[in-house]
């Protein structure tokens, strides 16, 4: 059962390809074939949200998607959040400023979830933010820093887009 396939996809704006087994998880392809280890696996059954990436702009659990299913798609991971590789995306800046992370293991999943959420909800209140984050588990922060960071980032994103 070693049928392998060639896949070609865009990851963080770059054309990437690979030859993969049908059963390979997208998360493992990103992490171990492409070396993009910023996407983390916390449960591998779709509950913790740590592995969340954007697939064609939509937040997706990369542990619940096969690498072959990403063929022809465009993927964004935490490494692609800021073009310079610095933590310069408003969400990254806000997480830093509001102490929205401790061990940082779950953080990439929170960031990618929020990218999609804030694009569609530019002016959320706290309850909406909490609901949007309820599919991501964090054991360190108690969520308050994350919620505050999301609210701060939404404000700074509004400012940027308003200009």
């Amino acid at each position: 059962m070693t049928d392998r396939r060639r896949i070609a996809l865009t990851v963080n704006g770059l054309q990437r390809d690979g030859e993969v087994e049908g059963r390979l998880l997208l998360a493992d392809f990103l992490r171990h074939h492409l070396g993009l280890t910023g996407t983390h696996l916390g449960c591998e059954h779709g509950v913790c949200g740590a592995c969340t990436v954007l697939v064609d702009g939509q937040a997706t659990r990369s542990c619940l998607m096969l690498a072959v299913q990403a063929n022809g798609r465009s993927i964004t991971t935490v490494e692609g959040l800021a073009p310079d590789g610095e933590a310069s995306h408003p969400l990254q800046a806000a997480f830093h400023e509001r102490h929205g992370l401790q061990c940082g293991f779950c953080t990439p999943g929170f960031l990618m979830t929020l990218v999609e959420f804030l694009e569609e909800n530019p002016e959320p209140d706290e309850a909406a933010v909490r609901e949007a984050l309820s599919g991501n588990l964090c054991r360190c922060t108690g969520y308050q820093g994350i919620v505050d960071a999301a609210l701060q980032a939404s404000a700074s994103l509004r400012e940027t887009s308003g200009q």
């Binding site: 910023g38 590789g85 102490h99």
Partner: peptide
């Protein structure tokens, strides 16, 4: 503010599975 954050926020931190 924390000195640890940059690597963790950009996906360049190194955990055991990395």
């Amino acid at each position: 503010l924390r000195l640890e954050d940059r690597a963790l926020l950009t996906g360049t931190a190194q955990f055991i599975d990395d």
